[in-house]
């Protein structure tokens, strides 16, 4: 297989981690989030900065996940005081703020971004080969799928599903809805941060634009297209929305039209997504 194919597969697995992580917030807990790429960016920058300053890859990776989770808490604390449309606006604002901060801080390199991020390394050996890096990202994706599945099949997953359905009723089931919503943000942002770290060490160069609104919408589209609340759906959504633009590359100028048409068609004919059971209107049209 050519290096190009490996590159696409690596991007698919990184975006699969991202879409699955967003699905925890949107699909499992039924909350709206429009700023998910910000978590991706925080993980990427945290990991890049730590490794540039001499930290090893593995600690940098996990610390990046933890830093991102901490920011997830920082966002959720004020954001979870509001619901639905208001939550959408708060998360949207969060996404914009993060990009602005990355753009304006000196330590993050401003609009130019971070250059010369060291490659991922395992046991002291740098991982330059694409197949090797793909194995690494697939390994993380697999661990994530298993852990997300375990949570979904537990008391926690049931509490999330109850909150998604009706959070007032969920309170009367003895569910501390604030705690479980917070937990969704923490788990989700942790994984998005890990994805960011993997991405940073893969590309060796990051800049703020990558983590803006466009990427947030892209990740959300993967979740919605694949199916809200469905694990396989998120993987499928990521695969489709990473691979399709590559296939449509000859039509680069019309790519977004195709994209938009695909999403509109889905919403009209199958609003629950390819694999999902929950329709998007149940999350975004809540009263």
């Amino acid at each position: 297989m050519s290096a190009y194919v490996f590159h696409v597969l690596i991007m698919v697995s990184i975006f699969a981690i991202l879409s699955l992580s967003l699905n925890i917030i949107v699909g499992f807990a039924g909350l709206v989030s429009l700023g998910h790429a910000a978590f991706f960016g925080i993980g990427a920058y945290a990991s890049g900065l730590m490794m540039i300053r001499g930290m090893g890859f593995v600690p940098a990776l996990f610390l990046a996940g933890l830093c991102t989770a901490a920011l997830g808490v920082a966002l959720a604390l004020p954001a979870l005081r509001v619901k639905d449309d208001y939550l959408a606006i708060v998360t949207l604002g969060f996404g914009i703020i993060v990009v602005m901060v990355l753009m304006n801080l000196e330590v993050t390199g401003g609009p130019d971004g971070l250059v010369g991020i060291p490659p991922a390394a395992l046991l002291g050996t740098p991982l330059y080969s694409k197949p090797g890096f793909l194995a690494l990202t697939l390994g993380f994706l697999l661990v994530m799928i298993l852990s997300v599945y375990a949570l979904k099949q537990s008391r926690i997953g049931r509490a999330w599903a109850a909150i998604r359905d009706n959070d007032v009723t969920a309170m009367f089931m003895g569910i501390n809805i604030y705690y479980y919503k917070m937990l969704a943000f923490i788990v989700s942002s942790f994984w998005a941060g890990l994805a960011g770290s993997l991405y940073a060490h893969y590309t060796a160069y990051i800049n703020p634009q990558t983590f803006g609104m466009h990427t947030s919408i892209q990740i959300l589209s993967m979740v919605v297209l694949g199916g809200i609340g469905s694990i396989t759906g998120s993987l499928l959504g990521a695969a489709l929305l990473v691979v399709l633009p590559e296939i449509l590359r000859p039509l680069a100028d019309y790519q977004d039209i195709f994209y938009g048409a695909l999403l509109v068609t889905m919403m009209v004919f199958r609003p629950q997504g390819i694999m999902g059971r929950v329709k998007i209107t149940e999350i975004f049209g809540k009263k």
Partner: peptide, 19 residues
């Protein structure tokens, strides 16, 4: 009625056992 609409009958009752 405030049953959980996306769940089966059994799942609804299991949510009730949360505490």
């Amino acid at each position: 009625l405030e049953i959980f609409r996306d769940m089966s009958v059994l799942e609804n009752v299991m949510v009730g056992g949360h505490v």
